Amino acid sequence: MRSWLFVPGDSDRKADKAATCGADILIFDLEDSVAASQKELARKMVADRITDSGRDWSLWVRVNPLDGGLTLADLDAVVRPGLAGILLPKPEGGPDVSRLADAIASREAAAGIPAGTIRIAPVATETATALFTLGSYAPAHPRLAALTWGAEDLAADIGAATNRGDDGDFTAPYKLVRNLALFAAAAARVPAIDTLHADFRDVEGLECECRTSRRDGFIGRLAIHPAQVEVINRCYTPSEAEIIWAQRIVDAFAANPDAGALGLDGKMIDLPHLVAARKTLAAAGG
């Protein structure tokens, strides 16, 4: 779940390029990047790409918002074997995940897909109202795979001129939103995925944000261009030194199962360190 790359649903050229860029997840978009006149074509094009074999990345689809009257037609087209998940835009809390899950369930059954296969990740902060319901994602719905946040639609919703300052950093309101989304994911016990870095030419800025993001607890990031994928994958992959240290912590507690705290290389480690070490090893595929 390191790199989540958006791909316009109505562009075969961009889809072909994205499929070879190394992203962990491709999100075929039926929402903002597709004009209203192209929605039906995009559904067909995305549906034609959904297979259950022959790729080394997960295929997700961003459907249209639940209150827009297009979501069910999106699901009719894309719920088929090979679809890993649905990215839900503009939800207003956990009940919207349940609504979407119910709509997916009937289509899974019709398609012969085992119940619960298709997961859901909400973009949980795209409206002002949604900020006041972030706690409703916990306890997590069984289909909830991750939680991410968005700054672009939120800026439009509140009438902001921009969401970044002259230094390129998010302004104070959006830093608050980011932090709340991180805590909401933790409360729901699902991975937190950071939002996109809109300037895909700003490689240095992206890398800086990714390193800060991973430090704070995010495990991956949205991307809007294949050029961002390498930086994201590298920044959210634990280093060899981190892996070795995490394994030593796990091994130390395994050798002392009754210990609440231990000394390791002159440092005191306890249960929070063990939890963090296990997360590091999981991120490294261990």
Rank of each mutant, 00 (worst) to 15 (best):
A259M: 10
A276R: 12
G54F: 08
L271K: 11
A246F: 01
L83A: 00
A110I: 10
D52C: 12
A160R: 07
D56T: 12
I244R: 13
W149G: 02
G159P: 10
K175P: 04
A23R: 00
L41F: 12
D153M: 10
A187P: 04
P173D: 01
A73T: 05
W245R: 15
E92I: 05
R43V: 04
T133A: 15
E207R: 15
P114W: 13
S213F: 07
A115I: 10
R189V: 08
G68Y: 12
V123T: 03
P238N: 11
A186T: 02
R201M: 09
V123G: 00
A246V: 02
P95Y: 03
P122I: 00
D56P: 05
A284C: 11
V177D: 00
R107C: 02
A254V: 14
A161K: 11
G260E: 07
G112S: 09
A146G: 01
G263C: 06
I193C: 01
A284V: 13
R55N: 09
E152Q: 13
L176H: 14
E92K: 08
D12I: 07
H197G: 02
N64C: 06
N233V: 02
R2S: 05
G266Q: 10
L222A: 07
D76P: 09
W60S: 03
H273S: 05
V61H: 04
W60V: 03
K14Y: 08
D48E: 15
G285V: 04
A185S: 08
D258Q: 14
L5V: 08
E240Q: 13
V203L: 13
D258I: 05
G286Y: 14
S58M: 12
V78A: 09
K175T: 15
I86H: 02
D202K: 07
R2M: 07
I243D: 03
F218E: 00
P226H: 02
D16E: 15
L147Y: 00
R248G: 04
F218H: 00
K90W: 06
T280F: 07
P81W: 04
R189M: 09
I50E: 08
D56C: 09
A259C: 09
V203M: 10
Y236D: 02
I120V: 14
M268A: 03
A198H: 13
L72R: 12
R248M: 07
S33E: 06
V229Y: 05
A246H: 01
R178I: 05
P122Q: 03
D251E: 15
I27C: 01
A160W: 11
R248C: 06
I158F: 08
G263P: 03
C208K: 15
F170N: 08
A73S: 12
S33Y: 05
K39G: 03
A77K: 05
M268C: 04
R164H: 14
V123L: 11
D199S: 09
E207K: 15
A111P: 04
